[in-house]
């Protein structure tokens, strides 16, 4: 993070605007980056000098059960395969939506994500994908008139046909 702060400070230094002697647009980000760097240096020095030393905490953190529950999360083993699958699926969803269109990409996402999350009922997942996506298309595109990706090529033609079927012009 300290290296990143150094890079951004350098990038802020390259913001070149004639301010006529007034305070410039680089001052605010530079002040933030300087504070960020100072905090990083402080934390590094503190950990090197005294790993279990003085540490101020927010008021909430010492308050009891909530913080205790949060604190235990890090020590839990977790499900790294599920997590990796989930991240990959979310990435695939956002990257594929412009090409596949909202209906197809959402149907696939709604069908596969619960499966990755541990729901081993293939027919339910498949039905959820199709019915859920269709319901969302109706709500957002027919009722709320929100413009969502239609896709490209045959997927675009399919999305348009579907919208016509639903009465969305």
């Amino acid at each position: 993070m300290l290296a990143a702060a150094g890079f951004f400070y350098w990038a802020a230094g390259r913001i070149d605007v004639d301010t006529g002697g007034r305070i410039g647009p680089a001052v605010w980000p530079k002040a933030i980056i300087a504070m960020l760097a100072l905090l990083c240096v402080y934390e590094i020095v503190k950990r090197l000098a005294s790993p279990s030393g003085f540490s101020a905490t927010g008021i909430v953190s010492t308050a009891g059960p909530g913080s205790a529950a949060e604190g235990s999360a890090e020590s839990e083993p977790g499900h790294p395969k599920k997590l990796a699958g989930g991240i990959a699926l979310v990435a695939a969803y956002v990257f594929s939506a412009p090409s596949l269109g909202f209906f197809v990409s959402t149907a696939l996402f709604l069908a596969i994500f619960p499966w990755v999350g541990g729901l081993r009922r293939p027919w339910l997942c498949a039905a959820l994908g199709v019915a859920g996506s269709l319901a969302l298309v109706v709500v957002f595109m027919r009722i709320a008139y929100i413009s969502l990706p239609l896709g490209e090529g045959p997927f675009r033609a399919f999305s348009i046909a579907l919208l016509r079927l639903l009465g969305v012009s």
Binding site: P29, I33, E43, S55, G58, I59
Partner: peptide, 20 residues
């Protein structure tokens, strides 16, 4: 910052990142 997080330094770092 006063409220959230286990560490004041972590809270301030988080805030700085948000401001940045």
């Amino acid at each position: 910052v006063t409220l959230s997080g286990a560490s004041l330094v972590n809270s301030l770092i988080s805030l700085c990142l948000g401001l940045l």
